[in-house]
């Protein structure tokens, strides 16, 4: 991004620059976004991460973070305790999640530990977060429920958008190559199920993506690496402008796609009466029409993707 576009205002960093806590980013003619704070007329970074500049709003996308539950997120959790009328889950966060029994049975009375027991891994939605950040979870939605088999890989939650890629380009490519079912929770837990050998390859690849999320041209490199491991030969080099864009621009955009979505919705005053589920259904229909249903391998179709698609539909 060009500095001159901002005229007389003082800005000390460029888009996608690596910054560290306490570093001065700009003067307060800019708006401080997430990962920044105002101090004596300057905007400073509060975390180690990459700068994202847009319309005089300055943000820092952290390279490492802990998941803080947010309403509407889809997460993967492990049952850590069974109580009288609820399950307690570890959702890879400083805060534990709880799944009330009525979310599962409705009014019926059943024994809780016969349905889900300690150690079970579930795919859930965050229904509500209270002021002390306790997350209430639910199972309503497509593909929600208990996982059978598979392995869990954990990555830092800020790198989830990178693992998904633009319009799911990265995740679909991995699914395609490894023939594994992959489900990504926004809390940074990833469930992988398939051939034992492929599970291990996928696990390594996901870890690699996490480690190199901040570098460019990643989708291509991962693709080559996967082809090399699985087929034993180098992939044919293809010029893919889509992927280039993916790495250059999409990352900061994807990071806070929800915020931006909300913002855009406000600005354009469009679709504001629709909730997630409605738009989700709509996208599903459209996807079927367009015959690009490759997103729905196994149980893995989540609202997460549909939000991406929704953005695309604007």
């Amino acid at each position: 991004m060009d500095n001159n576009a901002y005229g007389d205002f003082m800005i000390y960093v460029d888009n996608k620059d690596l910054v560290i806590p306490g570093q001065i980013l700009a003067d307060d003619e800019f708006y401080p976004g997430r990962g920044t704070f105002k101090d004596s007329g300057n905007i400073c970074s509060s975390v180690m991460g990459l700068v994202s500049l847009r319309n005089k709003k300055i943000r820092v996308i952290p390279l490492k973070s802990k998941y803080v539950p947010k309403k509407g997120d889809v997460v993967i959790g492990k049952i850590s305790d069974v109580k009288f009328s609820m399950w307690e889950l570890d959702i890879n966060s400083p805060y534990s999640g709880m799944l009330p029994a009525f979310e599962v049975f409705g009014r019926e009375k059943k024994e809780l530990n016969k349905v889900f027991d300690i150690g079970d891994v579930l795919f859930l939605r965050v229904v509500e977060v209270d002021e002390v950040k306790k997350a209430k979870l639910g199972l309503k939605g497509r593909g929600m429920g208990k996982f059978k088999g598979g392995v869990i890989v954990d990555i830092t939650p800020t790198k989830v958008p990178r693992l998904i890629g633009k319009k799911g380009s990265m995740i679909n490519m991995i699914k395609d190559k490894t023939k594994c079912n992959i489900v990504v929770g926004q809390n940074g837990l990833v469930w992988v199920s398939g051939d034992k050998e492929m599970e291990n390859i996928t696990k390594d690849i996901i870890k690699l993506i996490e480690a190199e999320a901040h570098t460019s041209g990643l989708t291509d490199r991962i693709k080559n690496k996967l082809t090399l491991i699985i087929d034993g030969e180098e992939a044919v080099e293809e010029e893919d402008f889509d992927d280039y864009f993916d790495d250059q621009l999409e990352k900061p955009k994807l990071q806070n796609f929800k915020d931006e979505l909300e913002q855009e919705e406000l600005e354009e005053k469009k679709n504001d009466d629709k909730d997630f589920i409605d738009s989700y259904k709509e996208i599903k229909k459209q996807n079927k029409k367009d015959n690009k249903n490759s997103l729905s391998v196994g149980k893995s179709n989540t609202n997460f993707y549909s939000i991406l698609n929704k953005k695309d539909d604007y």
């Binding site: 560290i20 806590p21 306490g22 975390v47 180690m48 800020t158």
Partner: peptide, 11 residues
């Protein structure tokens, strides 16, 4: 602490 991604005013 900075490496852990904990928000800080300064190092």
């Amino acid at each position: 602490l900075a490496d852990a991604g904990i928000p800080m005013k300064d190092i």
